[in-house]
Design a protein around this nucleic acid. Sequence first.
DNA 1: CCGCGTTGCTTGACAACATGAAATATCGAG
DNA 2: CTCGATATTTCATGTTGTCAAGCAACGCGG
Lengths: 149, 149
Amino acid sequence: MVPRTDALTLEVVELIATVVARYHEEYEEAAAKHSLTGAQARVLALLASEPQPMRRIAQQLKCEPSNVTGIVDRLEARDLVERRPDPADRRVKLAAATEAGREVSGRLRASLNFAREPLAGLSAQERTVLRDLLKRMLGEDPDDPYTHL
Amino acid sequence: MVPRTDALTLEVVELIATVVARYHEEYEEAAAKHSLTGAQARVLALLASEPQPMRRIAQQLKCEPSNVTGIVDRLEARDLVERRPDPADRRVKLAAATEAGREVSGRLRASLNFAREPLAGLSAQERTVLRDLLKRMLGEDPDDPYTHL
DNA sequence: CCGCGTTGCTTGACAACATGAAATATCGAG
DNA sequence: CTCGATATTTCATGTTGTCAAGCAACGCGG
């Protein structure tokens, strides 16, 4: 196997670090334009697609549930999110995006031009190659669907 | 040009988001193993390669200089970083990694296995293709070296 | 049905990170 | 030398994050 510190690998890692930095930058910036923090935007995006119990939000954010309480509190104070009882389990509170919340989330997603700009320079064929390489890198091998978790 | 919301582009963006999330996760985790926060690890890495004025650290972190004060304070309290006067301008304080700081930074870098694991499954040729696509995506066209900043 | 351990959420205390405004010291141009 | 600009720090404040403790509700074994 190729040594793990060869120049090519280091270069790719460096590039990925740059992608990560730029992606984050753009995301925070886009969120700020809607008076949201990054964390608030992420939670709102989660809830815009589907109402979820607090616990599950914490799992997806990889943080403690007590942290989610505060984030949802702030979103709720702005009527972007609401807490509903779970009819199946009275311990659970389902956080759901309100109509206003979905609207903001939609506009935010649309304003995220990371999707467009950096990929615009790549042909459809190149994007396909990139997609497959990223999938392989992430362990979702398109030729071996049993590889992924 | 291809519409900016076609399925392929969205899929690639989704994959990039996953890469970003996983990279961050691993970075924080690796930093925590050395009792550092993500921000501290980033600053330490910056200073390990070269001493810098506070102002410049803030620019690279894209935050206010007043924020850097606290981060460097905490690193300095652990003798990983020291503040030196700038002989050319007495307003400036140069933050520099100590020997211990460089040592920790080096071990942290080595423990970042994001470099290895995800890329291990790709052949050298595939990594070359990935490198070039990422470069193109980031505006550093390998065929046109004058494009990059 | 009744206890009792488990689960889901919130609260409180605390640390780190982030911003903005104001204070201080120094620089540099005129 | 004066005065505006620059580099850093301090302070007040808000958000994110952790952990421990508390409470309500679930559900299982008896």
